[in-house]
Structures are given as structure tokens and as C-alpha cells.
């Protein structure tokens, strides 16, 4: 980072600090009832207290677990199914249109069906999260497989590679940018669905925490939970970017 960029960054952080100060001012002057809007000081205290004495940490871990398990299951199944469908012309012709038809379906609509089948359980939450998160990954994988440079397939044929070898050595690496983009999109979906499932099923997690805090009108705890959820979204997306850069470094170098 050069000098100017650092200066802009500092200025930008100052602007954000200014907004927080304005928030504090609004809260202090009680322009909005403190029942709805705690100041950043109270939200921060609630956050610290929640971690030191309360069970905020276990709630955070609960949400992260739901998110991670559902997302990982979706990633594995999505890439496997996507590879299966994407690597065969026949499957692409027969199966892909149905998947495209299902794509605009609001995935949360599957929640009642999942509740009817599995009840208000951990399994229901994992099923819903995995079901919601699989679409972006699977469709991106299919797209990535379909867009592989045809000459690479010719090379594979010339080398008489097996189908598994073609998938592992040619198609997957070449579709990797698409797949990673799909996985990044799914991360957001997984977080949202985790929160919804926790709210609905009362599972241990931040969704349940914010709902309980709202019901009891403990707005400071509520804001602490929302801030944590924002931080979760931010940090998981940053982690994903790092992984993406690592895994795609060879492609950037090749260009």
C-alpha cells in the first residue's frame, strides 16, 4: 500500500468513527427511545459482558457450527453433483434445465417442508442450510465444467486419460474460479439460513439470542448480537478471499 492509500484508509476510518459518534450522540440525547436504540457504549458493554460472563461465546460457536457444517456439506455435494452433471453432455441436456427452473425459488420456502419432515431439530437446520447453500455451488460448478477450453479435453483424449483423471486434473482446476465464487455466495446464504433456523427452531445460536433479547426488550444485548453477526459475515468473507487468492495464484501467474 502506498502512502496516499493509507491516508485515504485513515480518513475513511475517521468517517466511520464520526458515524459512531453521531450514533452515540443520538442515543445520549434520547432522540430515539433507549428501548429501541442503545448507544454504542451500551452495545459494547453488553458484548464484553456477554463474552465474559454470559453465554454469547457458546451462541456464536453454535451459529458458526450450523453455518460450517451446512456449508461444507453443500460444498462437497454441490461440487460432486455439479461435476457429475457438468461433465456429461447427456446430463446437461436433461437435468440442467430443471435446476435452472429451481434457481429463483426462495430457498427459505423449503423450511416448512423440512420442519414437517424432520421437526424443530438440529438436523432440520442442517438440511435447510445445506439445501440452500448447494445451489450456487452446484450451478457454478456446472457452468465452470461447461466452459472448460475444449482443446484441453482434446489433449486429455490424446493422452487417453480416464474420466476421473480428466475431472481431477483438467476440469476441476479450470472450473475452480467459478466454484470458489459459488462457494463465496453460499457462505452468505448459509449465514442467513442459520439465523432463520435458529429463530424458528430455538436452536442454540445468535439467531435465538437476538430474538430472545428483542422479546425481553434488552436492546443492548440485541445490538451486541447483530454486531457479532455482521462481524461473522465480514470475517468469513475475508477468509474466503484469502483462500481464493491462494488457490487461484497459479492462474494469475499464468496470465
Amino acid at each position: 500500500m502506498n502512502r496516499a492509500a493509507i491516508l485515504w484508509r485513515v480518513a475513511s476510518i475517521l468517517v466511520a468513527a464520526g458515524f459512531i459518534a453521531a450514533w452515540q450522540l443520538v442515543a445520549n440525547l434520547k432522540l430515539v427511545s433507549p428501548v429501541f436504540l442503545p448507544g454504542p457504549d451500551r452495545a459494547w458493554t453488553a458484548l464484553v459482558r456477554g463474552f465474559s460472563s454470559g453465554d454469547l461465546a457458546s451462541k456464536l460457536i453454535g451459529t458458526l457450527e450450523h453455518m460450517a457444517y451446512g456449508w461444507l456439506a453443500a460444498s462437497i455435494a454441490g461440487i460432486a453433483l455439479g461435476a457429475l452433471i457438468g461433465s456429461s453432455k447427456l446430463m446437461r441436456a436433461y437435468v440442467a434445465p430443471s435446476l435452472e427452473f429451481l434457481r429463483p425459488l426462495p430457498v427459505s420456502a423449503i423450511i416448512p417442508v423440512a420442519i414437517a419432515m424432520l421437526g424443530l431439530t438440529q438436523g432440520m437446520a442442517l438440511f435447510v442450510i445445506a439445501f440452500g447453500a448447494i445451489w450456487p455451488i452446484m450451478l457454478a460448478t456446472i457452468h465452470g465444467f461447461a466452459a472448460v477450453e475444449p482443446r484441453l479435453y482434446e489433449v486429455a483424449r490424446a493422452l487417453q486419460m480416464s474420466r476421473m483423471a480428466v475431472i481431477a486434473k483438467i476440469a476441476l482446476p479450470s472450473a475452480l474460479p467459478d466454484i470458489l465464487a459459488g462457494m463465496r455466495l453460499s457462505l452468505t446464504v448459509a449465514l442467513i439460513l442459520s439465523v432463520v433456523c435458529e429463530i424458528l427452531a430455538g436452536l442454540d445460536g445468535l439467531g435465538h439470542w437476538v430474538l430472545l433479547s428483542a422479546r425481553a426488550f434488552r436492546s443492548a444485548d440485541l445490538f451486541a448480537g447483530v454486531i457479532l453477526l455482521g462481524a461473522t459475515g465480514y470475517l468469513t468473507s475475508v477468509a474466503m478471499s484469502v483462500v481464493e487468492q491462494r488457490l487461484l495464484a497459479w492462474q494469475a501467474a499464468a496470465r
Binding site: 480518513a11 475513511s12 476510518i13 442467513i192 439467531g207 437476538v210 430474538l211 448480537g225 447483530v226 453477526l229
Partner: peptide
């Protein structure tokens, strides 16, 4: 754009559904 960058990046990752309890009580 550069001045607002940090503010936007701080608010954007909040999952919309997390605002539900706040919207509910207010």
C-alpha cells in the same frame, strides 16, 4: 467513495435477517 469505504464495509456484511428483531421491537 474512499471516505465511506470503511463505513459501508462495516454495515454491508450484516445479514439482512439479523435486523429482524430490531425491526420487530421498533
Amino acid at each position: 467513495d474512499r471516505l465511506m469505504e470503511v463505513t459501508i464495509e462495516a454495515i454491508r456484511p450484516i445479514p439482512s435477517i439479523a435486523l429482524l428483531p430490531i425491526a420487530l421491537i421498533s
